[in-house]
Design a protein around this nucleic acid. Structure first.
Length: 460
DNA sequence: GGACCTTTGAAGCAC
DNA sequence: GTGCTTCAAAGGTCC
């Protein structure tokens, strides 16, 4: 169970219980298992093997009886190899890289976006969270330590950042941090080309957008992973877009926040805080503040109503993780296809330690809190139906069909034990019911199952 | 041009 | 309370 409080989260009493509960649920089972994390990972392997049709019957007989750690490791590695066999070469490369660096890579990679939590609007929401973490690089944690905008651009050296290291081309954690982590050396205009979304341009004077407490700005230390030098060389084919141009004018407007109903004249949210979650409904960049002078008021008014901006959902922990790590995976695997990358990221997410994950959960919680403050009346429901999706029946039919097919194959290779039966029964129920977390179903059914048995089973 | 794929988590909704 | 559905990001792929 993650100890979020260790990161200085005391004093923040909003939300987070849901995440912690989820953590606890899995942790209760997992903490009993040596080398925590393997069961989940192995389950992911199992699930992967169910989805992929190349289930290895060869691995099925490898379920020895020794539940020791080395055995568990061996099985996990077997499972990993099995998974690799099913992946395309490029994917395989990524997994090899994962094996090579493993979790350690992430332990070494300082995820310091956590520190930035202290930079949310000074309304008391996140004041406690950053205090424990923001000790690095001379940024300090004490109130009044900062020096305003100048501090933003100068003092915010990441803990792991090397002087002079360019920060462009590195993904930023989250829209909020894309703004909060404004950097003097690159004024970026991250344009979401798919939706025509303009990310907030980086500015040298963050204090002009946030009602930060005195010194709060100065506490900003660019300790996020994105600010660090890239771990891997970035060949032109790795998918990096050069959208963090340094040529963008710092004074450029924030086109993504231009809707009159939510924005102030300068592209602000009514709170005075620009937020990249606001997206023009059309999905295209809108320069309504220019149009206003060109079109009749009545027509402009109609357009206003028709093109209400879409406020995007705040990113969850995994999304934040993906956003940070995507570039690394792309660099490692020379992959561009997000579906494959996301598979890798999903596995790596499970391979993260509790502490590592806790950072992202905490970060996501802060995102939600700030989002709630910025858009009190917003509901996730507002965005329902804005994406056209194919019918659920079709989707479920195809997916479930393949998974059940894989399940049958898996069943034929499994040792017949009570635990296996219970687990597979749960898995089948989950698949048929459209549930994704069959493991959770299993735990509900067989809470007293021995972890080693489950481990053995999951690796099968 | 836009849906799909793929991942996990959060939230809404129906029962 | 439980389970299902939708959306969030991302970019190649396909229709």
């Amino acid at each position: 169970m993650p100890q979020l409080g260790g990161g200085g989260g005391s004093g923040d009493d909003l939300g987070a219980t849901d995440e912690m509960l989820a953590f606890k649920d899995e942790g209760e089972q997992e903490e009993k298992i040596p080398q925590g994390g393997f069961p989940e990972r192995d389950l992911a392997d199992l699930k992967s093997s169910l989805v992929n049709e190349s289930e290895g019957a060869g691995s099925s007989g490898q379920a020895g009886s020794g539940p020791g750690q080395t055995e568990a490791l061996r099985r996990a590695q077997n499972s990993q190899r099995l998974y690799q066999d099913k992946l395309p070469d490029a994917l395989e490369e990524g997994l090899k890289a994962q094996d090579g660096s493993g979790v350690g890579m992430y332990k070494e990679s300082v995820y310091s976006g956590y520190n930035l939590l202290v930079h949310y609007p000074a309304n008391g929401v996140s004041a406690g969270a950053g205090a424990g973490a923001g000790a690095g690089a001379g940024s300090g944690t004490g109130a009044g330590a900062g020096t305003g905008a100048g501090a933003v651009s100068g003092a915010g050296q990441p803990l792991h950042a090397k002087p002079g290291q360019p920060s462009h081309g590195v993904p930023q954690i989250t829209p909020l941090y894309e703004h909060f982590s404004s950097h003097q050396t690159h004024v970026s205009a991250d344009i979401n080309q798919k939706q025509g979304v303009h990310r907030p341009l980086q500015t040298t004077d963050i204090s002009s957008f946030y009602s930060l407490s005195p010194g709060g700005v100065g506490q900003i230390s660019h300790t996020m992973g994105w600010a660090s030098p890239p771990l891997y060389p970035l060949p032109p084919s790795c998918g990096y877009r050069q959208h963090f141009s340094t040529a963008v004018s710092p004074g450029a407007p924030y086109p993504r926040f231009t809707h009159p109903s939510l924005m102030l004249g300068s592209g602000m949210h009514t709170t005075g805080i620009p937020h990249p979650a606001i997206v023009p409904h059309s999905g295209k960049q809108e320069l309504q503040h220019y149009d206003r002078g060109l079109k009749p008021p009545s027509e402009a008014k109609q357009e206003k109503e028709a093109k209400k901006p879409t406020i995007k959902k705040p990113l969850n922990a995994f999304m934040l993780y993906m956003k940070e790590m995507r570039a690394k995976v792309i660099a490692e695997c020379t992959l561009k296809e997000s579906a494959a990358i996301n598979q890798i990221l999903g596995r790596r997410w499970h391979a993260l330690s509790r502490e590592e994950q806790a950072k992202y959960y905490e970060l996501a919680r802060k995102e939600r809190q700030l989002h709630m403050q910025l858009y009190p009346g917003w509901s996730a429901r507002d965005n329902y139906g804005k994406k056209k999706r194919r019918s659920r029946e079709k989707h479920q039919e195809s997916n479930t069909g393949e998974k059940l097919k894989g399940l049958e194959e898996c069943l034929s290779t499994l040792q017949v034990t009570r635990e296996n039966e219970v687990f597979l029964e749960s898995l089948e129920e989950g698949l048929q019911g459209g549930k994704r977390n069959a493991f959770g179903t299993y735990k509900e059914k067989e809470k007293d199952a021995a972890p080693a048995q489950f481990l053995q089973m999951a690796v099968l």
